[in-house]
Design a protein around this nucleic acid. Structure first.
Lengths: 338, 338
DNA sequence: CTGAAAGCGCTTACAG
DNA sequence: CTGAAAGCGCTTACAG
């Protein structure tokens, strides 16, 4: 993996200085737009730089200045459009703030995650936005913070420790969805998809809470856990239908699961919105375009990414500020599936 | 955006050297695993490094060595799962080869693209994988190459210039899809979605070629251009159905368009696979899960990303090697929509 | 096998 | 307003 030295030595600030007949300090000053330099000199330097094809070497500048304009972003599952949207929002906000994103995709591998975090540290990332891989030990948040690099955890929490967090209020969102079905008269409501873990617990708890608030009993036998994918949703719906032929409503762990469930419904000659009430969670871009369009809990994925970025930028600017947990309150968006 | 200097000075190679009672050159040597250093010394150095919590400063090392292990990846449209999959494949391959990816999302903005490329250059990226934003001037490939940084263009070509390219054979893929419909007896076939540009031209040409090969005339009035999204596909299908009520088959610019078209079909009481033959393009992950599952042209998006990475890595290792154009031959995957 | 020295390309006090 | 000098943290000949 040797990088050959560039055939022709890169032009540096020194070359520009020589060409413009000033010292390299002066060049540095005009490059950063210092007001100390008179316009005439400044012009001359700029012209020389342009003429020589000078390109700023950030690595050198940042090494000297002990700063960085790269921020690390680690995502687990780009195949889920939810995360792709979060990433897009995050990157946009970071770019607008002048940062470039060092991105890594872990595919839920703890090993990859650890490796990539270390690399980001070695690269002196100015901050890290992390959506922890499944089964990430809770201690990771403290570990990262002990590195002295600003951190924001997003989407999935990481134990009880103290760290900035940006995510959606899962319990509240599912509660709203459940209430909607309850209000429509449903009393037996399935819950489909999701793998054991905090996130599933949070979403389920919203479901239970809505039942409890209504003075009703939630039937735990109607919970069909499954991987949070289309396939998982498809299979979970089949299991639900097989076990409970009379069931007429379900809430899904996320939109992907709902899309899969829609397929299974379809295969059984059932039409969501007519024969069955189905709710998703996330409101990914595609939810508006499923068959039928999906009623879901809108967590605004791209905004969530932007918020994570904003939080991280704030932490970077003010390392000492109190930690924040941003729990966006998702809103119901009712389309045709329920 | 000031970064305060870390409260406590970072521990450097010098500190480790002092602790291990050797010179900093020795530390550097053991860190890179040089065989010159006897095990005993090496142990001592490692222990000292661990004990002090030393972390390698890549920036300094790379500045000195004039190397880099970051590669830039620019993508336009993360909302399209096709690109998310390409990105995932690319990142995986790069990570496996020891590189970290500097990622940027342009949303098809030429301005963002230019800015981000410049930043990547300033960061001394070891290479760049670029999927050019729409309307990117063909000269960009030469510009980038004149920077002396290894480049691979992916998915969308960039004029006739000379550069490494990894993409799918659009014409061939659409030709296969068209042949499939022709073989099923269809003679009037719509073409839905896609914005004016080279990519649309390539895909259309495949369609025309298949007709020509069969000695049939392709009716250009059946082309309904539209943005390559679900909405675009939905609208295009509506237009097609309105203009040609008897039409029974169509090929879509990509899977997203096909998903939208499926919705429009559904609204018209038409069922793809029974009343209508519909083909997509890309074979994104979701294509297997639409209603009905989509027959499409499989370009293997993740593999495409991996190939782009492989090509880039090869160029980085051998700057002088002849340029390559990798045009993956997509294969038909027949599910239920046609 | 290990140390002293120079240098990667920049920034930043400090003089003048 | 501008220059000389030191230094960010590393690597790499070069001696010994």
């Amino acid at each position: 993996m040797m990088n050959k030295p560039p055939s022709v030595r890169a032009v540096t600030i020194l070359d520009v200085a020589a060409a413009a007949q000033v010292s390299k300090s002066t060049v540095s000053l005009v490059l950063k737009g210092s007001p100390l330099i008179p316009a005439e000199t400044s012009e001359r330097v700029r012209a020389a730089a342009a003429q020589l094809g000078y390109v700023y070497n950030r690595r050198a500048g940042e090494l000297r200045r002990q700063s960085s304009n790269m921020v690390g972003v680690v995502i687990n599952d780009l195949m889920n459009p939810f995360f792709a949207e979060v990433l897009a929002g995050l990157e946009r906000r970071l770019a607008d703030a002048g940062f470039i994103t060092l991105m890594a995709h872990t595919s839920e591998s703890l090993e990859r995650q650890q490796k990539v975090l270390t690399t980001m540290r070695e690269h002196n990332a100015a901050g890290i936005a992390l959506c922890p891989a499944l089964d990430t030990p809770a201690s990771l948040a403290q570990d990262l913070q002990s590195w002295g690099i600003p951190l924001v955890v997003m989407i999935r929490t990481l134990g009880e420790g103290s760290y900035d967090f940006a995510g959606a209020d899962n319990a509240h969102g599912v509660m709203a969805a459940t209430r909607h079905l309850l209000a429509a008269g449903h009393r037996r409501i399935g819950f489909l998809g999701g793998l054991d873990g905090l996130m599933l617990e949070q979403r389920l708890s919203g479901c239970r809470a809505a039942f409890a608030d209504a003075g009703l009993a939630f039937d735990e036998d109607l919970v069909f856990s499954a991987s949070p994918t289309r396939t998982g949703g498809h299979d979970a719906m089949r299991s639900l239908l097989a076990a409970q032929p009379a069931i007429k409503a379900a809430i899904c762990y996320n939109d992907l699961v709902a899309f899969g469930a829609l397929s299974a419904l379809d295969e059984n000659g059932l039409r969501a919105g007519k024969d069955f009430a189905l709710m998703g969670f996330d409101n990914v871009f595609d939810a508006a375009h499923s068959h039928p369009p999906l009623s879901t809990v809108d967590v605004r994925p791209a905004e969530l990414g932007e918020q994570a970025a904003t939080l991280l930028l704030a932490r970077m600017a003010h390392p000492g500020q109190p930690r924040q947990q941003l729990l966006a309150r998702p809103k119901l968006v009712l389309r045709q599936s329920a």
